[in-house]
Simulated assay, not measured.
Amino acid sequence: MISPEPHAACQAAQAPLKPARAWPATFRACVLAACLISAMHPVHAAPVGEVLETPAQTVDERLPVPVVSVARAGEALIGVGPHGVIQRSVDAGQSWQQVTSPVSSDLVQVRFIDDRNGWIVGHDSLVMHSSDAGKSWQVQLDGRSLLTLLHDYYQPLADKGDDAAAQVLNEVATASGSTATPGVLAAPFLDVLFDGHGNGFVAGAFGMLLHSTDNGAHWQPWVERSDNERRMHLYGLAQRDGVFYISGEQGLLLKQDVAGERFTHIELPYAGTLFGVAALNDVLLVHGLRGNLYASRDEGQQWQKIDTGIASSLVNIIRQGNRWLVVGQGGELVGLDRRTLEVNTLPRVPGGEVYGASDSGKPGELLVSRFSGARVVNIATAE
């Protein structure tokens, strides 16, 4: 995979909690999409503090607009990507209109829990919320407020001799000191998820984890409340019946211990990076590099490897009818029977690498995000 030198905003966004650590290859694909747009839509490479204060510029719709993540909000479709760009479609993806964005930070993930309420996360420790089906967005958290939140939460604990709190503070100080903008924690959030009761989590690079009980109006740090002492990147979130799961690099899979208010480790027969987890009915699915997909029907006590026939990394698993759709980064697509877990190969999605996928709201169709933009495709024909 080509890894060009990223522009300044991307460099700042990759400031690590532990500088010796590196980004896995597939995540660099998303960074690539977030950086190469500069060649088509020239934007001043502003410091982190400025991109948090500067609304996204209007893109030239005559040129391809890279989209990293997509989601459905009722009848609307939402796509997000580099430089704070947010797009919205109300005609099943036939046309897209840019939505006003309060920031120009690179956006990584968008999720909706119902027809109106959704969240976007991205670089510069950004969390944004919409309560009107993606028509408008408000910042709930960013690299400045996160740094204050972490300090105010952990410093009193460290002063009382809490070693775990002191360790987090030291890591945060290292990370914030490596950015060109003082007072900003620039590491990216990579996923966000809420249930229908306002309970949710935001997770990100180098083990960053926060919890909210009021739809993101307030956050509580949970960095030390997980079996992730090595601060592995946290890539994906899922929840079932109010219990949350987190997937991460090097085979990391965590399950929420609701009573114990922490995340505990689930053993896997796989040590590669897991880009996502899906808690579907009675099946727990985890997916990652090189088409690897594992399923468990007993909360992770036993695992079954599923041969997807896909060589590229898996970017998403989407429920549709009586099957799940497994989407590969190379555009590969397979159906997975919900009862038997048998795989059915489907036509490949054309048009280059796929960064994300979502249900489009119509049977037989799929919404995908790519460097050339978001597109709704017919599953049977891939057109």
Score class of each variant (00 low, 15 high):
S131G: 10
K135N: 11
A186R: 11
L107Q: 06
I120V: 14
A180Y: 11
S176P: 12
S176F: 08
L157H: 00
K160L: 13
R116P: 02
R88V: 11
D163C: 04
H83G: 13
V172H: 11
A76T: 01
H129P: 00
Q109L: 02
A166D: 08
P188V: 00
V184R: 12
A133M: 00
A187Q: 12
A76I: 00
T148M: 12
V139M: 04
V110F: 04
V108D: 04
S131C: 02
G177N: 13
W96I: 11
W96H: 10
L149V: 10
S125V: 02
P182Y: 03
A187G: 11
G81A: 03
L141E: 07
V139N: 01
D152R: 14
D132N: 13
F189V: 00
N170W: 13
D114N: 15
V172M: 08
D159I: 02
D114R: 07
G183W: 00
A92V: 00
R88F: 04
D115P: 07
P182N: 06
T100C: 10
L146D: 11
D162K: 02
Q94F: 14
G118A: 01
S176R: 07
P82S: 02
P188F: 07
T181S: 13
S105R: 07
G93Q: 09
W96S: 13
R144T: 12
I78P: 09
H151F: 13
R144I: 09
A133P: 01
G143D: 06
Y154Q: 03
A92N: 15
A175L: 09
Q87M: 15
S130F: 03
E171A: 10
Y153G: 00
L77V: 04
L147V: 05
F112H: 10
D106I: 00
W137L: 06
R116F: 08
